[in-house]
Design a protein around this nucleic acid. Structure first.
Length: 329
DNA sequence: GGTAGACCTGGACGC
DNA sequence: GCGTCCAGGTCTACC
């Protein structure tokens, strides 16, 4: 089944989907050669694998610029009912960040002119808040290669299987039924086992209501306070979930921020002092602080490893640890 | 309020 | 091949 998905005028699949590390995590897969993004999404109990391209692959253009704004072609591996098609569209829109208005990007580019020419501004995320939260927890206190392994195992062992034989990310209901010790043994999540299962239970029984969390009328401070009460969510994870909720006023500061502060911004001092200076450095960016911070870091990665759309998960994708970047800075 | 130590895994390193 | 050390953010106990 093939579906056409319209995108904003400046949307560029290769640039905008390869904009955040989650594009390297299962169930996501980017093919640099085909310039195609593949993912598997659970549509309330039934998984569908989709392959997304932009432009006419029969007449490929060498210039990315010519693809800007062209509709996406979504190949699904199964026929979908009307309601499934609508749900898929909603989830892809979230994942691809199609909802951010062009005016927001213009505001960002007016504030930070460095990214206007390349058009950076959209950030990919997960099709659901639950997947974003669990992916955030699986990136805490581990190095990036372990995050890749954990997400692969979560999908392979607990995700619904599509007609193509690929697995979606587990649903809250599925994860809520797993015993923590079993999750630890099968998915290598370590001491995070009970925290992940408890988060899944909170989503499954309604204690965490995505609609209430994604309510645009709530203040950033109010949301941050609530996120900090969730198991496994500390200051870094809460700030990261905020940016995944498209609230960019906070920075998820971690060891990578310290590396960046030292290597790129030239800050000195203890890690704590450097984090404070990174925090202060991006204060003028106001509501766009995370965008400015993130694309500065992303540019650093691309200087060393080439454009993100050329990265391969099994090689380039494993390189992003503070120690490896430190040694190559 | 601030801080030290435990938590768990995987990679690096030395033997 | 085995043992040891280290990196990574959150949580808890303690001062």
């Amino acid at each position: 089944m093939i579906v056409r998905l319209d995108v904003p005028r400046e949307y560029l699949l290769a640039r905008d989907v390869c904009s955040y590390g989650y594009f390297l995590l299962e169930p996501n897969h980017w093919s640099p050669d085909a310039r195609a993004f593949r993912t598997t999404i659970d549509l309330d109990g039934r998984a569908v694998t989709v392959r997304i391209t932009q432009g006419d692959l029969k007449q490929p253009t060498r210039s990315f610029a010519k693809l800007r704004g062209r509709p996406l072609t979504v190949h699904a591996d199964a026929r979908l009912s009307k309601s499934e098609g609508e749900l898929l569209s909603t989830r892809l829109s979230r994942l691809l960040d199609l909802c951010t208005p062009a005016s927001t990007l213009r505001d960002f580019h007016a504030l930070d002119t460095r990214f206007k020419k390349v058009g950076r501004g959209r950030l990919m995320r997960s099709p659901t808040l639950f997947e974003d939260v669990i992916k955030t927890v699986t990136s805490c206190n581990v190095q990036w290669p372990s995050t890749i392994v954990i997400n692969r195992r979560l999908c392979e062992t607990l995700g619904t299987r599509s007609a193509s034989g690929l697995h979606a990310f587990p649903t809250p209901e599925k994860l809520a039924r797993v015993r923590p010790a079993s999750l630890r043994a099968r998915c290598r999540v370590g001491y995070r086992d009970a925290r992940i299962v408890e988060l899944a239970r909170m989503f499954a029984d309604g204690r965490i209501d995505p609609a209430r969390i994604e309510d645009p009328h709530r203040s950033d401070d109010d949301l941050l306070d609530e996120l900090l009460d969730w198991p496994g969510i500390g200051p870094y994870a809460a700030a990261n979930i905020l940016q995944l909720l498209r609230r960019f006023s906070r920075l998820p500061l971690d060891t990578e921020s310290v590396r960046h502060g030292k290597a790129v911004l030239g800050f000195t001092g203890t890690p704590k002092q450097i984090m404070k200076r990174v925090h202060d450095h991006f204060l003028p960016m106001g509501a766009h602080r995370f965008r400015s911070y993130w694309f500065e870091i992303w540019s650093f990665y691309e200087q060393r490893h080439g454009p993100a759309w050329t990265w391969v998960r099994e090689t380039t994708g494993t390189q992003f640890t503070a120690s490896k970047l430190q040694s190559s800075a």
